[in-house]
Simulated assay, not measured.
Amino acid sequence: MGEDAYIILSKINEGAFGGIYSVHSIVDKKIYAMKQILFHGDISCDAYIKYEIEHLSTLKHENIIKLRDIIIREYSVNLIMEFAENGSLENHIFENQPTFRDIYLIFQQIVTAVDFCHLNRIAHRDITPCNILLTSKTIVRLADFGLSVPCRDSEGHVILCDDYMGHLHYSAPEVLKKTPYDPLLSDMWSVGVVLYFMVYARVPFVGDEEFILSQEIDDSVIASKILENVEQMNDNTGLFNIIIRNLLTTEPKNRLQTDKVMQFIKNEA
């Protein structure tokens, strides 16, 4: 559909490369979200835009945000997507006191979405509570594929990343070290930080980049981040802490992958 098919209602958020807006469709009278990506030069040479469009177009899953339309203008690409009326997971955690069951249901869907990406050889690389949206209290949509990349070639071999982007608090140590890394395994670190945030309403590592890295590569610090919450622990929280501890491991190859995390969750169903 053309750009005249939508009316901008309001700005939802400001992204790194443009705004996020709510828009009204003239055709079906529904509300959608529009992500505006500003660019200069030849759009076909921008790998980040290329991958975001490609991956949103191909990743069809109930827990991944749905792409409806693409409108390309002279200096912007506008992605029309499903509108998540309940906002981001970050706001949900700050504004509510989610129960164990709520966290369980939401986290299960996050892992399912990430698993689907990884099975399709795509790494998200920006898994944060801001990029996990809710269409209802506990229905998840993984969003913002602006940093997503292919993580395996056609033969299943690892495609290492040598750009070091993403949210500081959710970045794995190998990303902060700025050494070539496997983005599938760095995604799993981010999933661990997201679960920590869901349980304790804060991130485990704060400070500048150097200080965060010094904490992430110290196993004793990682263990203490969980133990310091011992007063909040109960049998259910204990399950989450086991998963967190097996995701926040300095050595990437030792992190749980999505199938193992889902096995943990399934055993508690």
Rank of each mutant, 00 (worst) to 15 (best):
E3T: 03
A5V: 07
Y6A: 01
N13F: 01
F17Y: 15
G18A: 07
I26Q: 11
V27G: 01
L38W: 14
D42L: 00
I43Y: 07
C45S: 13
E52L: 11
T58G: 04
K60L: 03
N63K: 12
I71H: 04
I71P: 08
R73E: 10
R73T: 15
E74S: 10
Y75C: 08
V77M: 13
E85Q: 10
E85S: 15
G87F: 11
I103P: 01
I106K: 14
Q108D: 03
Q108E: 08
N120H: 14
R125E: 07
D126E: 13
T128G: 09
P129T: 05
L134Y: 14
R141F: 14
A143P: 05
D144P: 06
F145S: 00
F145K: 06
G146P: 04
L147V: 00
S148I: 15
P150T: 00
D153Y: 03
H167V: 11
L168H: 01
L168W: 05
H169E: 09
S171E: 10
T179W: 11
P180I: 00
G192T: 11
V194H: 12
V194K: 12
L195P: 07
Y196Q: 14
Y196N: 12
F197Q: 12
V203W: 08
G207S: 00
D219F: 14
K225L: 00
K225F: 08
M233E: 09
N236I: 11
G238L: 13
L239W: 02
I243N: 11
I243T: 06
L247R: 12
P252D: 07
T258N: 13
K266N: 11
K266Y: 03
